[in-house]
Amino acid sequence: MTGRTSGLRVAFAGVAHSHPWADAANLVDIGATVSAVWDADDPARRDDFAERFGAAVAPDPGALLADGPDLVVATPRTPRAVAVAAACAAAGIPVFLNKTVAASEEAVGAFDRLDAAGSRFSTASVLRFAPAVAGFAERVDPARMLAVEVSAQHDIAGFLTPERDWQDDPAGAGGTILNVGLHAFELLDAVIPGARPIIAVGRSARGDLPTRSETVALALGSVHGVPLTVSVSGVPGPDRYAIRVLAPDGAHELVLGDGDDLGYTGLARRLVDFARGGDAPVAWRRSRESYRAALELAALTREPAPVLVAEPARELVAEPAR
């Protein structure tokens, strides 16, 4: 889809974090209308969103969908995501869900059932739609890779505030590994389509941040049978998303950070295509592998193995020779 669109009505189911604000602004810029918004958890954010984009406030999901939007962009708190997707499916309205939509295998299974029933839904990291990611994918040959390194850094300070600490809850939105780590796993799949990461070893650490999940997590595994290293971090500092592919002809690296095109504009264009009957921006079978890899990493680092708590460095003392 190119150029502007008119007459497209988009409803928003949840404004739990910053992404729907960017989505709405980009959709409006290309001619769509924000018809209505609903949010069950934060009426102040909902009302601010409605005022900014001239949207009606819906009292419940039924009222939001009864108005007959062409598309729903859903960003509810994670435990509500399955129900929102199911309601859209029942109404026959396509829905795109901003991450994170599942923090358990049970939720992944619920989306599997919706997919098997032919429901028109999609979920993805916005990084998949960044022009630099598409260009990098064209230059990398998955058949010739020797090893892959992927990393995602996103300061979790926002997750630790009273307004957003639901994201730091391992049993709610999944904590750092899910909310930050999904960017890493979906960047991997965007560059290597059909990637099925297998996590063999994982470790995490909290440090002194008051997180209920983790501050960093590292993993070793494989993808397509070649070594894979994954780094997930929420330490203070700018965002950084990177993938490095080692091949016989050298190292190929992509790094995205603050100030780069992270894919929001590309996503808006794909959403218009989706609303008009086009393919889902990302098929669930691909997003599912990212969720399963993140959940596997979380299971390895949280249970039964304890989360490692960083300690001050200690001076090494050599033992006497025996």
Rank of each mutant, 00 (worst) to 15 (best):
L262P: 08
A242I: 02
P248V: 10
V272S: 14
R244H: 04
L256A: 05
T229F: 11
T229N: 12
L271Y: 02
V255K: 01
G257E: 02
T265L: 07
T229H: 14
D260S: 08
T229A: 14
A268W: 03
D261I: 01
L254E: 08
G257Q: 08
G225D: 04
L246K: 13
L271H: 05
S231H: 03
V272T: 11
G225H: 06
Y264A: 10
Y241Q: 09
D261W: 04
G259N: 02
L246D: 10
V245E: 13
Y241T: 02
R270F: 10
D249T: 08
S233G: 12
L254K: 05
D258H: 07
R240T: 12
G225M: 09
P227A: 04
L262Y: 03
R244W: 00
V245N: 14
I243D: 08
R270S: 15
S233E: 04
G263H: 08
H252M: 12
A242Y: 00
D260H: 05
G225I: 00
R270M: 13
Y264C: 06
P248Q: 13
P248G: 14
Y264V: 06
D239R: 12
A251M: 07
A247T: 04
V272L: 15
I243N: 08
V230M: 00
G259Y: 01
Y264M: 12
G259H: 00
V245C: 15
V230A: 05
G234I: 02
P236W: 04
V272K: 13
V226A: 04
R270G: 10
L246S: 15
G237L: 11
V226Q: 07
V235Q: 13
G263E: 09
A247R: 07
L246W: 07
Y264G: 11
A247Q: 09
